Computed example of a mutant assay.
Amino acid sequence: MTYSGGPMTEAMYYVLLALMRPNHGYQLMQAITEVSRGRLKMGPGTLYGVLSRMQKDGLIALANDDGRRKTYEITKEGEHALRLEYERLKSLIIDSSVLEEENDG
């Protein structure tokens, strides 16, 4: 199965951002908190559910499994999906400029 595109959940987006450098589960939870500037704290249940789904979708891959910990990395398809989502989010902000115009008057 491959990722069909469309809006990503916040969890998916931050997992992909955090996986711009390969990481294992615990490091990944810390990296997500860091990259979201403390706004998003992801617990193990949510994280491993998202990782499993994203692995099935081909957005991430297992880089290493030493038996104790699994290290994940973003795939080319995952990076492409992340960049598409980034462009979509930027468009939302640009389209919302009318909200700032209302504050001027």
Rank of each mutant, 00 (worst) to 15 (best):
K41E: 15
T33F: 10
L82R: 00
M42Q: 09
S36K: 05
L59F: 00
Y86E: 15
E79G: 03
A63P: 00
K41M: 11
A81R: 08
D57T: 02
R69A: 08
N23K: 07
S96L: 09
T75H: 00
N64V: 08
M8H: 10
D104S: 14
G49N: 13
Y72Q: 06
R21D: 15
V15F: 11
E100Y: 06
I32K: 03
G45M: 13
L28R: 04
E79Q: 06
M42Y: 06
L40K: 11
G5S: 08
A63N: 01
A61I: 01
H24N: 14
Y48K: 12
M12K: 11
P22G: 11
A31P: 02
K90T: 14
M20N: 03
E10A: 02
G43D: 12
E10I: 01
E34A: 15
L28F: 04
V50Y: 06
L16P: 03
E102M: 08
R37P: 00
S96E: 14
N64S: 13
K90F: 12
A31G: 07
I94F: 05
Y48V: 11
Y3W: 14
Y86V: 07
M42G: 05
L28N: 02
S91C: 04
Y86I: 09
M1G: 04
G67A: 08
M1P: 04
L89A: 09
E87G: 05
D66A: 07
Q55N: 09
V35E: 06
E77D: 11
D57R: 07
